[in-house]
Design a protein around this nucleic acid. Structure first.
Lengths: 249, 249
DNA sequence: CGCGCGTTTGACATGACTCAAATGCTGTGG
DNA sequence: CCACAGCATTTGAGTCATGTCAAACGCGCG
């Protein structure tokens, strides 16, 4: 249980990370998690001229939908987002949740229009990378393209694991896996691995994990009865990480 | 029903596409589907010196497993492959099937070891791209990196659709979607969209779709009773594409 | 402060799984 | 070339995890 939360607030608030639109990459608190990692100073300056920093969006803001032409990639600067794809009949699947430093729109690079939809789960902001520019400067900044390849590959590997989750895991295993995945990502961002806010709704979680809302609700209740977590609305405390790891399957 | 099968054999045999190890990219029958697309002549010559063409593997050959260090990407030259990832307890998920011209190993770029396993489903061969080299020549052949980005993005988009399938679709919808996906990929390779061989076992199909083998078997039987397909062992004939499309959900 | 929606909880239904057994196919060795 | 062994596939019967329907609750937003 002995967590080393050096400079960590009790509850994360990703929306508060960075609201200043004028912070350059080299001064951004996300520097070590974000795109510019590995770029030299010259390239960093170039990148700063390309990136467009968004205003602060409120909850439910649509970054893009599958009907819109692909123009830009986005990196979350603060807050969080979800992406979804829609079947012909309107059913949709939450394909991912995105936190500061993570890319949104990587699945769009190869085509005219975004194949998915992206919207904010809370007060949020992004850095926007116009893609036409990015392609042009590929030759000038090969290191940036390597970064892009790395990011794409990482998301791909994550999605393969989600396929394992959706295809093979039980409801218990799904939720345990999901909670630990969130935990790890919060920790990577310097927040507590055991105390955080779920910015997404129960129904978003259920949808993402291929479950019914009611099932997720029941699981939360049972996990709490068992003493593995404490859940109150959107606030989550993980009390028994080892047990959850064991549950992951 | 009026299919225009111009130069198409009755049944596809991907294993027969190209067995000559000495065919250079520019002369390869897969040229238009493969990596070199968009490269100028100079780059194509360079690429030819980098690529290593494998011998002909037999069914069940392991290209790599998740324990091995990441060295190369592979492009299927003939035959077909499946990739899987394994959970801690040994359960595994078939994450994809790969046909001539398609990349295997893209999810490995960002890390030391392959995160998944790849093995051939039939007599098969590959072109191997040692990745260290590829990274070095990124500057020289930016167009190649764009191709890589495009491929990665395409696979990512495909995987998002698989998440929709695994998370939201019924067994009927899953199988219909799967069969049409195969159909489309065969057609892209110049084969019949309605007559082909399933190189993967029922249990591979079941696993990939998040179903039990018995369910898949029953579905094949029922689809046949309904007159939508004719299935005999590994040979499939699609009789009613429209119905399957309607079933996709 | 009150309305509305998100969440929780309960009761019941069912699609798909598991277990079991028959059948069929494939590759191998005599 | 055929016979056999072993594995893949099919088919049937019964169960179960999770979904669906319904209703109460309560938090958060306006």
């Amino acid at each position: 249980m002995a967590q080393t939360n050096t400079v960590t607030p009790l509850f994360n608030d990703l929306a508060k990370i960075e609201h200043d639109r004028n912070v350059a990459c080299h001064a951004c608190s996300l520097y070590s998690l974000c795109l510019p990692l590995g770029l030299d100073n010259n390239d960093l300056v170039k990148l700063d001229t390309i990136i467009e920093r968004s205003q602060n969006y409120k909850r439910g803001h649509t970054l893009f939908t599958s009907k819109q032409p692909f123009k830009s990639l986005f990196v979350v600067r603060s807050g969080s987002f979800k992406t979804t794809i829609s079947a012909a009949d309107g059913r949709d699947q939450v394909t991912g949740f995105y936190f500061p430093g993570e890319f949104i729109g990587l699945d769009a690079i190869h085509q005219q229009n975004y194949p998915s939809n992206a919207r904010s789960l809370e007060s949020s902001s992004v850095c926007e990378l116009p893609f036409s520019n990015l392609e042009d400067i590929g030759k000038e900044m090969p290191q940036l393209q390597i970064q892009m390849l790395t990011r794409l590959s990482k998301e791909l590997a994550g999605d393969k694991n989600l396929m394992l989750l959706l295809g093979k895991k039980t409801a218990d295993e799904k939720l345990a896996t999901f909670l630990l995945s969130l935990s790890k990502r919060f920790q990577e961002r310097g927040f507590s691995a055991t105390n955080f806010q779920l910015s997404m709704s129960r129904s978003d979680i259920a949808n993402h994990l291929g479950l019914a809302v009611e099932t997720v609700s029941r699981l939360f209740s049972r996990f709490q009865e068992e003493g593995w977590i404490v859940i109150a609305g959107k606030s989550l405390v993980i009390k028994n990480t080892a047990k959850l790891e064991q549950l992951c399957g």
